[in-house]
Design a protein around this nucleic acid. Structure first.
Length: 473
RNA sequence: GCCCCCAUCGUCUAGUGGCCCAGGACGCGACCCUUUCAAGGUCGAGAUCGCGGGUUCGAAUCCCGCUGGGGGUACCA
């Protein structure tokens, strides 16, 4: 393959959702795999709905994901002259024509057809209007749209993913290229741009498949060979319905905010519809590039499995260099401790967390003393009769110097043996006192990082609290 | 309504006529490790390959129909 050119063409009417992110990824992967060019084009011809800040947000998300573009971003809103010229050419060549029906007239005709139970098709007079009359009416200032003269033969779309689809001429209308206000319509700008930008492969969602025959006809009218099409199956929510905010996070930015790593999201998205074979699951971008091919993309829709993403994220999280981890954690808030303490704490909690957010949350115990204690734990270990040995543990811990976990454990085991209690009935109340929870890293390693002062303070406060409560009731 | 697409464990998928009474991963269960929770390791349950017809010596793999799901049908993208 000689240097393909692909593009990602989002319209800034929303943020980058996972479907779009996956489309961008596949285009990017394809370009990188074949040393091609990845073009970014912003389809903002719908002035009403397009917003500049959404464009910025999309670019941010792509940068975050590592999907860097080689050309662009081009803005369709800045390319009106190109579309106007193309429309003029088509008109002059008779491949397109003016139609003078108003939107209201068309609406009425559509309604009438529906009421009669018939399939609506554009049946206006524009198609057969003599050139001179068309020119005259346009010159007189009459409003018109420009429509494409569709060929009267079937159009076959040979799709790299979906296979062959044939569309009969009856199903294809002379669709509008340019609105009566002079603004070009999506189908038109896409094709003009794809031709103009030399796009060789169009990789996009299947929702565009039914539009593809229009595009094929348009490419031909424009005098260009249609590109190779590859239509990707939809990404559905866990319930099989269209993925939306209703299913939780659906935008790349939301996953970022929820503490997901870009490499995990990208890996997960890559596997949604594409498989490298050989049971490969975890891959770096580089590996994906070398393995990627259109042939291995499946045609069926897939559901977004949040659980698997989270698992993958956990996998990637474990692999992040410890130094980089604190930087990544910063936006999620870190307790006011020195860097070394934080790094030791991270090392202790990393394997217990699957997202940055979870990790940051876990690290909070190195900041403020716990004020809430989990109910199940209190019921089991918040008993006054356990406080005696807990206090004993505290006083033995106070004597440990240097404050190292191996020594603490020896001391604790000795205490347990002497008093005939299990290590667990010593450790669990301590864990509760120190973290408010029954789940934590190995107790003494955590205590070492927490520090002697904090440890003793929390244990004593907890014992006071339990005994005080018992005395009051 | 009409047009188009899709259909393998709950989910993502491998599989392109015999290697498959279907492999991997997530999730789930059990066990090991263990002061708790994870991580990790081992094992396991889980799919008559949506249904019904063909074609073939032989079909998850090819063909047809049905059913189910999705998408499109705009002077939206």
């Amino acid at each position: 393959m000689t240097s393909p050119r692909v593009r990602f063409a989002p319209s800034p009417t929303g943020s980058l959702h996972v479907g779009g992110a996956r489309t961008a990824l596949y285009n990017w992967l394809f370009a990188r795999r074949h040393s091609g060019i990845f073009v970014l084009r912003i389809e903002d011809t719908d002035v009403e709905r397009s917003r500049r800040e959404l464009t910025d947000q999309i670019l941010d998300a792509m940068t975050w994901l590592g999907l860097t573009w080689d050309e662009g971003p081009y803005f369709q809103s800045e390319r009106s002259a190109i579309y106007a010229a193309a429309a003029g050419r088509l008109l002059a060549e008779g491949r397109a024509y003016r139609a003078f029906e108003t939107a209201d007239e068309l609406e009425a005709a559509r309604k009438a057809a529906e009421a009669a139970g018939k399939v609506y098709r554009y049946g206006g007079s524009g198609r057969s209007l003599p050139r001179e009359e068309s020119d005259r009416r346009a010159a007189a200032g009459e409003k018109f749209v420009i429509r494409l003269r569709m060929p009267d033969e079937p159009i076959v779309v040979q799709d790299a993913v979906q296979g062959r689809a044939e569309f009969l001429p009856d199903a294809l209308d002379d669709f509008i290229l340019v609105r009566s206000d002079g603004n070009p319509v999506y189908h038109f700008t896409v094709c003009v741009d794809d031709v103009e930008m030399g796009i060789t492969h169009v990789i996009r969602g299947v929702d565009h498949l039914p539009n593809t025959p229009k595009h094929v006809a348009l490419f031909r009218a424009l005098g260009a060979e249609p590109p190779v099409f590859a239509h990707l199956g939809m990404i559905l929510g866990p319930d099989g319905k269209k993925l939306s905010k209703r299913h939780g996070a659906a935008g790349a930015e939301e996953f970022r905010a929820a503490g997901y790593l870009p490499e995990a999201l990208v890996n997960f998205l890559a596997l949604l519809g594409w498989s490298p074979g050989e049971d490969r699951e975890r891959m770096s971008l580089q590996e994906m590039i070398s393995l990627f091919s259109l042939e291995r993309i499946g045609p069926s829709p897939s559901r977004f499995d949040h659980e698997k993403l989270t698992w993958l994220n956990g996998q990637f999280l474990q692999a992040v260099a410890p130094g980089r981890l604190l930087t990544l954690l910063e936006p999620f808030g870190l307790p006011a401790r020195d860097r070394e303490t934080l790094e030791r704490a991270v090392a202790l909690h990393l394997s217990r967390c699957r997202t940055l957010r979870e990790l940051a949350q876990a690290l909070r115990i190195y900041g403020d003393d716990p004020t809430e204690f989990e109910a199940a734990g209190m019921k089991k270990f918040g008993k006054p009769e356990l406080m005696t040995s807990l206090r004993a543990l505290a006083s033995r811990l106070a004597a440990v110097e240097p404050f190292a976990h191996a020594k603490m454990e020896d001391v604790a085991r000795a205490l347990a043996a002497e008093t005939g209690v299990s290590l667990g009935s010593l450790a669990q109340p301590a864990r509760l006192a120190l973290t408010g929870s029954l789940a934590s890293p190995p107790l003494f390693e955590m205590i070492e990082v927490l520090g002697k002062e904090t440890t003793l303070r929390r244990i004593l406060a907890f014992a006071d609290r339990i005994e005080g409560r018992a005395g009051a009731s």
